[in-house]
């Protein structure tokens, strides 16, 4: 294990930023997000979760898929291939799990999403262990260890004014080897104890129960306060829905994909007007069933990681921990 003093971290980031485009949580106008590091930003490492999850790096808000050009009568098409190296520094264990879940979606079940795969394979991930749980954290309910992230290239812990770094993969070892002057041997010394979460959910039997709850009046009840905005879906690290659209300028244009939200009416509305999920009841139901029933059925894992973003930011506090509690309380015979 290696070590670097906290105040030296920007230097390490500077060194790594020469290897690839480096993203690290920074403050912009009071909002903490993963932003490209230019050596001058205000780091928010060690504070709570970023507002937006890091999924943006693999599955950008907007991504050009291909360009087309008309010249004379002929039309040509060119795929956009993004192979830039990225280094993602400071993600938490919950977000690391979310990337594993996105891998299931984009890389398995018959088709590989090439846009996602390229960005994913070109990204090194450096996780930072949590020393403190936020009020809204409940990752431990999903078996996530806030003190050690899954499947990352480097794990970092903050201990007494220093960062301790440990490589988890060969690529991580290589990255640590890139800045030998800045890193020293950590020596002996314990790692900080992972914090306990304030919020907990009991997930036992939830999926099986939901399999019998599709028509239950529960959904008509819980959807009432939902405003039908897309905030939860965009801040959710595991939500992966997208739209594909084109934008034209004269004889040329682009086909892009962008985040989309199952909470929007247009999402499932078909040409001709039929909408299988016409009101917020169906949309809210679909969102929670997706996280708690459909995702487990399809991929064998819950589609929630307990990052708490929706709890912190939903304008009306649609609280998934309470909804899970409510599901547990439903009397199916009642």
């Amino acid at each position: 294990m290696l070590k670097i003093a906290k105040e030296k971290m920007p230097e390490l980031l500077n060194a790594w930023a020469k290897i690839g485009k480096l993203y690290v949580p920074q403050d912009q106008d009071g909002v903490s997000n993963f932003l490209p590091w230019d050596g001058k930003g205000k780091l928010t490492l060690g504070q709570g979760n970023s507002v937006l999850p890091p999924k943006d790096l693999f599955f950008p808000r907007t991504e050009t898929m291909y360009r087309y050009q008309r010249s004379g009568g002929a039309l040509s098409l060119e795929e956009v291939v993004e192979n830039e190296k990225q280094i993602l520094v400071g993600i938490r264990s919950c977000d690391a799990r979310s990337i594993a879940l996105l891998d299931d979606v984009f890389l398995t079940k018959g088709y590989v999403d090439e846009f996602y795969r390229r960005r994913r394979e070109n990204t090194l991930i450096v996780a930072l262990a949590c020393n403190v749980a936020q009020d809204t954290c409940f990752c431990t309910s999903f078996g996530i260890d806030p003190g050690r992230a899954e499947g990352v290239d480097i794990q970092v812990w903050e201990v007494d004014g220093s960062y301790i770094l440990e490589a988890g993969t060969e690529k991580g070892r290589e990255l640590l080897g890139q800045a030998p002057a800045l890193l020293m041997e950590a020596g002996e010394g314990g790692l900080p104890e992972a914090p306990a979460c304030n919020l907990k959910v009991d997930l036992a039997g939830v999926t099986e129960k939901l399999q019998q709850m599709f028509e239950h009046p529960f959904w008509a009840q819980i959807c009432r306060k939902c405003l039908g905005c897309g905030l939860c879906t965009y801040l959710c690290p595991t939500c992966h829905c997208f739209d594909i659209q084109s934008e034209n300028r004269g004889d040329s244009g682009i086909k892009f994909r962008c985040w989309d939200s199952c909470m929007f009416s247009e999402y499932t509305r078909m040409a001709g007007g039929h909408n299988p999920r016409p009101s917020k009841k169906e949309r809210v139901r679909n969102r929670f069933l997706h996280k708690l029933q459909y995702f487990p059925e399809r991929y064998g894992k819950f589609g929630c990681v307990g990052c708490g973003r929706c709890l912190s930011y939903c304008p009306v506090n649609m609280d998934i921990t309470r909804i899970i509690g409510g599901i547990k309380e439903v009397d199916l015979n009642g």
């Binding site: 829905c241 739209d243 989309d260 499932t268």
Partner: peptide
């Protein structure tokens, strides 16, 4: 069945019936 579709490869989410 008919549903609104965008990707066709089970990623974009919108044509789900359950899982």
């Amino acid at each position: 069945l008919e549903m609104r579709m965008k990707c066709g490869i089970g990623k974009c989410g919108r044509c789900n019936l359950g899982s």
